[in-house]
Design a protein around this nucleic acid. Structure first.
Lengths: 329, 329
DNA sequence: CCTGGTTATGATATCGTTACCATATAACGT
DNA sequence: ACGTTATATGGTAACGATATCATAACCAGG
């Protein structure tokens, strides 16, 4: 609509002076500044951000890539990020990979095409070698998920420890037949968590049974599914470590429906400490991940990278995990 | 990095021809087209989207304003929107108003500054008179929430009916002392839902007691809170209609903790039919809102408005609500 | 009175694309 | 042979802002 030139014409000043007013440049006569502001008001002038972006080479926009926004873990992460971004005058583009590599790559292209100033990866589907090329177009950092081959800043939790912590807890409760449900194997976070599980089992001299392992499960329905597969087994596990509170909730829901008592017949431990863990009955024992803190720190680091023009600086920040004991174990 | 001019120089052609290749213009010699594509590949050329936006006056970006992303209702809505947007090559900017008018207005500014092609309002904090001015800068439509004074396209549910439906159900179960917990009064959706409640109560010849009404409640903790305030009453209600499954879940959680049996001592009905409603024990009877459908339809309408350049076309699409009976009533 | 810094303003080039107009050859019908 | 249309290409002016350079008035210090 109204452009800077029209404001200039309207005031009899040059567009340069108008621009100075807009950007609070010091050397502008007070009377003229007022005049310009009035004209802007009158014409309903607003700076066109596409023009500013082109000229200034900055977008004030950040993309966050997650794998499933309906997962409360990601909702909370994104919530914390959005809050900080908004406070700093940044926009947040929500990119959902839906666990697909192609979608993730398409979202990374945003950096190439200069639609965003930086990208936060809260979920990683592709190998580092496919992501790395994008780092030359702007800052990329990971939050929550990670790749040890990658050299990018990261805000993560010690997943090996998390896996260990949960498993130890089950062992301390006297369990020996422990099942494990995790995400996709190709994900390092998933493998690390499993490593922690293995370690605790090994320490206790317990064997890991193939038929007690479930992979690539995320949601409530997956949890229900797993329950049935477990209970179809000849020798049933007495405890399960689920890779997320939603899965745990699904297991518990179905267990109760089939009169399998939790935790007496089957102990269940989740992961994340989502609100739901405290809501259902019995409350889910879980590994607390500091979702808010992770999101906030990641965004802070991103801002820092953008404003100080740092690129592939390598920095790993590890946030604490914690066991939260409730009634499901 | 590499611009269209460099590709032009590299091929010995004009930037116009390169642009034609990029945009699949028909009149380009096949051999030259190939040559351009090779040069683009070699130089790692990618069109700069800020320049395109400026030139083309389109951003391929849509903003969605919600009030709280951690509310699963909004997560699901946004999920459906993001999916469709991505398929059509659009970006989605997540705008969380956190129930604050100022934030909402700041987000509406995105349309003025040409950062987005359109805005979907899934939550409305401001009066129509404060939103209306923005409609002249681009398409705005509402999804879920609405304002009868507003003339913008809407995708909504019949909230009066929803309120009526839930209340009737409680009445049919024999309840007469029915409490009601809703959102903020200034929201029309909230008032309509309450109107439905009133109507059902009136039809049954039941009185509405002031001390049974709770306003401005949204989350799990609010639900817990409400339970305590209800149970501090001399004459306790035997049923409560909560304006969201999270609130209902909070009420139930706390009820159980204080040995108040659901539904025998207290029947609880929720709203939305979020996954949680089916998960907790007892399952929450609730009013199903077609979240996916609402999100999808809203985004479809937005696309239509953008591509056909429609503005304040008034169109109201009402999607069906449904009572889902579980064990909490 | 001259030099040099502070204050104030404007002209112009530039960011990277694409729309529009101009030009040129080839192909075609009459 | 000649106008007409389809095919192919390039030059240039936008889109709307701001960085840079140039200019000029003013005041202070020597």
């Amino acid at each position: 609509m109204a452009t800077i030139k029209e404001v200039a014409k309207h005031t009899g000043l040059s567009s340069t002076t108008v621009s100075r007013v807009i950007n609070n440049h010091p050397y502008v006569d007070e009377a003229k500044r007022k005049k310009v502001l009035e004209a802007m008001e009158e014409l309903g002038y607003v700076p066109n951000s596409s023009a500013r972006r082109l000229r200034g080479q900055r977008t004030n926009t950040i993309a966050v890539i997650i794998s499933r926004i309906v997962n409360p873990f990601f909702s909370h992460l994104v919530d914390a990020m959005e809050k900080l971004a908004a406070e700093q005058g940044y926009q947040l583009i929500l990119c959902d990979s839906r666990l697909e590599k192609k979608r993730e790559i398409r979202h990374l292209e945003l950096l190439k095409t200069k639609q965003v100033d930086g990208i936060i990866l809260a979920s990683i589907q592709n190998d580092w070698k496919d992501i790395e090329p994008y780092t030359r177009y702007g800052p990329i950092l990971s939050c929550n998920e990670y790749d040890s081959k990658a050299s990018m800043p990261m805000v993560v939790c010690d997943q090996k420890y998390g896996g260990y912590l949960g498993t130890r807890h089950l062992i301390e409760r006297g369990h020996t037949k422990i099942a494990y449900a995790g995400g996709a194997d190709r994900i390092e976070l998933t493998r690390d968590r499993f490593t922690g599980f293995e370690q605790a089992m090994k320490e206790a001299g317990l064997a890991i049974r193939e038929d007690y392992l479930f992979t690539s499960y995320y949601g409530i329905d997956d949890g229900k599914n797993i329950f049935h597969r477990m209970y179809a087994l000849e020798e049933k596990p007495t405890a399960i470590f689920a890779g997320g509170d939603e899965v745990a909730a699904g297991v518990i829901k179905e267990a109760k429906r089939f009169h399998c008592r939790v935790p007496d017949d089957l102990a269940v431990i989740g992961y994340d400490n989502q609100p739901i863990a405290d809501l259902i009955d019995p409350g889910i024992t879980t590994i607390d991940q500091p979702m808010k803190l992770m999101g906030t720190r990641a965004m802070e680091m991103m801002m820092d990278m953008i404003t100080h023009n740092r690129r592939t600086m390598y920095q790993k920040e590890v946030l604490p995990l914690q066991l939260v004991v409730r009634q499901s174990t």
